[in-house]
Design a binder for these strands. Structure first.
Lengths: 194, 194
DNA sequence: CCTACCGATCGGTAGG
DNA sequence: CCTACCGATCGGTAGG
């Protein structure tokens, strides 16, 4: 049933869908738009995928898995909280940089998931955010960080991370690893000249 | 033609539309959804507005005007660059806090504008961002800020600002003015304990 | 603000 | 991967 060729074609369908979802949004992208971009008829898409939403699910939960795996590794390290935060940031950005299109869909289109997928997705996200919050709280408790509002801090962090697919130019000078470190510098050290 | 009552009803239509656009997205909100939420028939909406997109235009450009006015005032002040940045941030957040729903639509749905409106909108946005960038560049030139990548800095700033409508709870403890100052503290001073 | 309606398009299925 | 097609829904108009 699932030959290599079928999987490969399914992957192509999902990739092209991700491009269109990113550019026009999930709701504004029709299956006919997708079929047309692939050079086939709309009905033919259903040989590869079960529904339009299945594509979105695949993209959203696929990215969620990668983000979680990245954070798992960081949490397992025996390093300071500020170093954990830095590695959490660079890890998140590395994951995004490997698929900026899917990352943008993950961020902007997940709300079009139907239940119970939407609920599951939001639970994964809040869990991920809370793990970063714990790192920041740990850093405050150990005096590495100032006593700032941790909700504000973690939301600022996530804003910065999640907006990146909307402006980062992978063909530009800065590579993802440097970008992650510079973002970590900025959030940890601030703009001010000491 | 434009009696007070008509204007008022038009405002109601736009407000309700903003709520639905925020919750479900522009493309996934039908005129029938909107009519239903208002307790009228879909066709009746067109007594108040010319098209679905006109509503989106009104929301997006209305917010853009408010943001621009806020920054105009800050730029006219004779204060340091770091103080300009702080007031730019608090001003932006005050504008958003006055209409979190329209702010969310402004941020997430503007891409559904058709040409030439989309082009105009994006020009307004890049202009606004560049004015913040100039403030940061001024702060670096005057040694108030470190020599960071200004594009990264301004994008981080905008990420933080624009994501706020998605998590800020106006019924919570923190008021918009304090939120703006805390966000400014965080971006200017960083997380690190000195 | 309503009834009645338009042409276009939607996601998806049947059957090959 | 195709042709042929389904019922539902879309934004919007005519005319009152």
């Amino acid at each position: 049933m699932l030959s290599v060729e079928n999987l490969s074609r399914k992957e192509q369908v999902i990739r092209k869908a991700a491009e269109l979802f990113r550019e026009y949004g999930y709701a504004a992208t029709s299956m006919r738009d997708l079929a047309n971009a692939l050079g086939i008829e709309a009905a033919s898409l259903y040989s590869h995928i079960r529904s339009k939403e299945e594509i979105l699910q695949s993209l959203c939960f696929g990215m969620a898995d990668l983000f979680r795996d990245s954070l798992n590794k960081v949490e397992a390290m025996d390093i300071s909280f500020s170093e954990k935060l830095r590695r959490g940031i660079t890890g998140h950005i590395q994951v995004m940089a490997k698929d900026l299109i899917a990352s943008a869909v993950f961020m902007n289109e997940h709300r079009h998931l139907s239940q119970p997928y939407l609920r599951d997705f939001l639970l994964l996200r809040i869990n991920y955010i809370n793990r970063f919050k714990k790192i920041i709280e740990g850093g405050i408790a150990s005096d590495e960080f100032r006593k700032i509002d941790t909700k504000l801090a973690v939301m600022t962090l996530f804003s910065s991370l999640n907006w990146m697919p909307n402006w980062y130019d992978p063909s530009g000078i800065i590579n993802p690893s440097d970008l992650g470190n510079q973002l970590a510098d900025m959030l940890i050290d601030g703009l001010k000249n000491k």
